[in-house]
């Protein structure tokens, strides 16, 4: 049976990734890319809503009706209560950071959702099945840009390689609960890096972790402050 904590880990990954990606709105290099990034952020937000709603329902069932709804989970939890992997909360960075992170994260989500879609939990399988199609497009979009940036100009190559090197250590945390998925993830990511003329980093000993237990980087507090400010200033506001 799926636990509330497992659903929070899945939902928080999507929610925080959506929040970071949404920071690109009005800042992408071209209008068309702006819309693409906003679309992808909205896909992730939709996944977060379904997963957090499920977590909320499960929590309420356990507490006989007490407990929180999806909004309370998203907007009223403190930093230590979030279960997202640290990869999703790292600062926005430059455009290469955004697209390399999308490649790493979406390729992970693709393997994850494929497994969950075939799993025993029907409600989770339905969410994963729907999200799989969205994530397939995110992978596609990220691959397209990784190839362009890596195999582009000297400057774009330098920035893309820097993003790969910076983000690689944070990918280990994604697979802590499901180590068997990393093989398929590597099989998807490594050829893209090679084709993009980017070096695949060594698997070093620096492997930041703790997000699943509520231990986050120093960037998380600022992200939550912005994401939660409206709900905290106007509790229960709607339009």
């Amino acid at each position: 049976m799926t636990t509330v904590d497992e659903l929070l880990a899945l939902g928080d990954d999507a929610l925080i990734a959506a929040q970071r990606l949404a920071e690109w709105t009005t800042r992408a290099p071209e209008l068309e890319e702006d819309v693409a990034l906003a679309n992808i952020a909205l896909d992730l937000l939709g996944q977060a809503r379904m997963l957090l709603s499920y977590a909320a329902d499960l929590e309420r069932a356990g507490l006989e009706g007490a407990g929180r709804d999806e909004d309370a989970l998203a907007y009223l939890r403190g930093e230590r209560e979030f279960r997202n992997a640290q990869l999703t909360e790292l600062p926005r960075g430059d455009f290469a950071d955004a697209l390399v992170r999308m490649l790493f994260f979406a390729a992970y989500q693709r393997e994850l959702y494929a497994e969950l879609a075939a799993g025993p939990d029907e409600r989770l399988a339905a969410i994963a099945g729907k999200a799989s199609k969205e994530v397939a497009y995110h992978v596609d979009h990220a691959i397209m840009w990784t190839l362009r940036l890596g195999d582009g100009t000297d400057e774009s190559h330098r920035r893309a390689q820097a993003a790969v090197d910076r983000l690689w250590p944070y990918t280990f945390e994604l697979f802590e609960d499901r180590p068997h998925l990393r093989e398929a993830w590597l099989a998807a990511v490594e050829p893209v890096l090679a084709e993009a003329t980017l070096d695949r980093p060594e698997d070093g000993r620096f492997r930041p972790t703790g997000g699943r237990k509520g231990v986050h980087t120093e960037h998380m507090g600022y992200l939550l402050a912005e994401m939660q400010s409206l709900h905290r200033a106007h509790p229960g506001a709607s339009w």
């Binding site: 068309e32 596609d140 979009h141």
Partner: peptide, 20 residues
């Protein structure tokens, strides 16, 4: 219409702009 660097990217941008 839209802007794109090449045909492949134009198709993807079209998907995002005109078929959402």
């Amino acid at each position: 219409s839209l802007h794109a660097a090449d045909a492949e990217q134009a198709l993807r941008n079209a998907r995002d702009l005109y078929t959402r």
